[in-house]
C-alpha cells in the first residue's frame, strides 16, 4: 500500500482550472520532487493535499484512508508535516515555543489541565519540551531556543521551521521551496539538514524546488508541472532529457 496516493485530482478556482487530472503515488521513505515554472500550480497541489483547499474532484489517500474534506490539523496529526514558501513563523513566539506548539495534537491534559495546572500537564509539557530540544539539537539550533524567531538570521529561521514540521512526527514531509533565497553556504547547510532528517526519521519527502542542483541530487522521482498538468514524470536523468520540460522552462526551439 502506498503511503500517499492521489487519484485524478482536479481543482477549479471559480472557473479557473488550477490543477487538472493530477496523480501521485509516494511510497514510504521515498523522496519525490515537483518542479515547474512559476504559477504552474505546485503550491496549490500542496494546499489541496494538506487540506487547506478541498479538491473539486478526485481522491486522496493517506495510508489507504481518504483524507478529502478533512481539516488541515486532522491531516497533519495523521503524520503529514509541512513547511511553507514564506515560512509563516509566529512572530511573537520563541524558537522553543514554535517546536512545542507542533506537539499540540499529542497533548492529552485537556482544559482542566490547562486551567488548573494539574500534575499531568506539567509532566506532558516537560516531555514535549525535551523532545523539542532534541529536535532543535539535531538541526543545530538549540542555542537559540529562548530567542524570538524574528531576531534570528534567515538560515536559522528555516531550520526552526523544519524542526517545527518534524515535531508533528511526519511520515511524509511536504517542503515548499525550502532553499528559496538562501546563500550558497546556507544551501549546503540545508542539504545536510535534509539528509540528516531522512537518515534519522526516514520520512517520505515531497519537495517543491526551483534549484535544479537540489532536485537532481535528492529526488528519486520527479514530476514536472505546467499550467496545472503534469507534463513529464520520471527519474532526474529522464526529466533532464525530456524535450517537453525544456520547452516549458526555456520555450520552444525555433525551427528555421
Amino acid at each position: 500500500m502506498p503511503l500517499l496516493q492521489v487519484k485524478n485530482m482536479t481543482h477549479f478556482f471559480s472557473g479557473l482550472r488550477a490543477v487538472h487530472n493530477y496523480n501521485l503515488v509516494i511510497e514510504p521513505g521515498e523522496i519525490h520532487g515537483l518542479i515547474g515554472p512559476n504559477g504552474a500550480g505546485k503550491t496549490t497541489i500542496f494546499n489541496l493535499i494538506t487540506g487547506v483547499y478541498t479538491p473539486t474532484e478526485g481522491e486522496i489517500y493517506l495510508e489507504g484512508e481518504s483524507i478529502v474534506g478533512m481539516q488541515p490539523h486532522e491531516i497533519a496529526s495523521r503524520g503529514l508535516g509541512r513547511t511553507f514558501q514564506n515560512m509563516k513563523l509566529w512572530r511573537h513566539m520563541t524558537v522553543l515555543e514554535h517546536v512545542m506548539m507542533a506537539h499540540y495534537s499529542k497533548l492529552t491534559y485537556g482544559l482542566v489541565g490547562a486551567f488548573f495546572g494539574t500534575a499531568k500537564r506539567y509532566r506532558e509539557e516537560a516531555e514535549i519540551e525535551k523532545h523539542s530540544m532534541e529536535l532543535l539539537d539535531l538541526l543545530g539550533v538549540a542555542q537559540f531556543a529562548d530567542q524570538n524567531v524574528l531576531n534570528l538570521p534567515y538560515g536559522v529561521q528555516r531550520k526552526v521551521e523544519m524542526a517545527r514540521a518534524l515535531a508533528v512526527q511526519p511520515k511524509i514531509l511536504f517542503l515548499d521551496e525550502p532553499t528559496v533565497g538562501m546563500t550558497p553556504e546556507e544551501l549546503v547547510g540545508m542539504m545536510e539538514v535534509f539528509r540528516t532528517i531522512h537518515r534519522e526519521f526516514g520520512p517520505a519527502i515531497f519537495l517543491i524546488e526551483h534549484r535544479m542542483k537540489v532536485v537532481m541530487e535528492l529526488c528519486e522521482q520527479i514530476q514536472t508541472l505546467n499550467f496545472g498538468e503534469v507534463i513529464a514524470e520520471g527519474t532526474p536523468e529522464e526529466i533532464q532529457r525530456n524535450p517537453k520540460v525544456i520547452e516549458a522552462y526555456l520555450g520552444k526551439e525555433e525551427v528555421e
Binding site: 497533519a76 511553507f84 509563516k88 511573537h92 515555543e97 499540540y104 514540521a165
Partner: peptide, 27 residues
C-alpha cells in the same frame, strides 16, 4: 495557567499565522 500552557499559546499561534497553526496540528 491557561495562557502559559501550550494549549493556551495556541491562541498566539492562531493570531500570528493561522494557516501555519492549522498545519502544525493545532485545532
Amino acid at each position: 495557567n491557561f495562557v502559559e500552557s501550550t494549549m493556551g499559546k495556541a491562541l498566539n499561534a492562531v493570531r500570528d499565522e493561522e494557516s501555519a497553526a492549522d498545519a502544525m496540528t493545532v485545532n
